[in-house]
Amino acid sequence: PSSALPPYFMKGSIIQLADGELKRVEDLRTEDFLQSAEVSTELKIDSSTVERIDSSRTPDAVIIQFSVGEHKAQVCVEVLVEYPFFVFGQGWSSCCPDRTTQLLALSCAKLSVGDVCISLTLKSLR
């Protein structure tokens, strides 16, 4: 795995919403994700609450445990400390906001236990 974050988190990256509108990554708001998911035929937004943040054996990584969706499925993800998540009503947040800002120029809040992140799931398949 690469130690680099995906390019679309870099400040100034151009993001296309589902209705075709273009926005910079740092200008995205909660409504942009919600509205984009509404018009998506496959994807819907779930609420994923941060339950735990543990250190990882991998340098500069953390293991984040989320409680996902209405069924509160427990899901762990291992990410770099600077990996940004979008918190409802708050915006970009990472475990190490200083590092995120240093590497990506993206302003971040500190991701904490109890924060509710935007995640994606599939709309029910029939």
């Binding site: 679309y8 979008f86 935007i118 799931t121």
Partner: peptide
């Protein structure tokens, strides 16, 4: 200039079962 789709930016976590 590359343009990225909105859904790249948020993680895909476990699909929920609908009842």
């Amino acid at each position: 200039v590359p343009v990225f789709p909105w859904h790249s930016l948020v993680p895909f976590l476990a699909p929920t079962q609908s009842d």
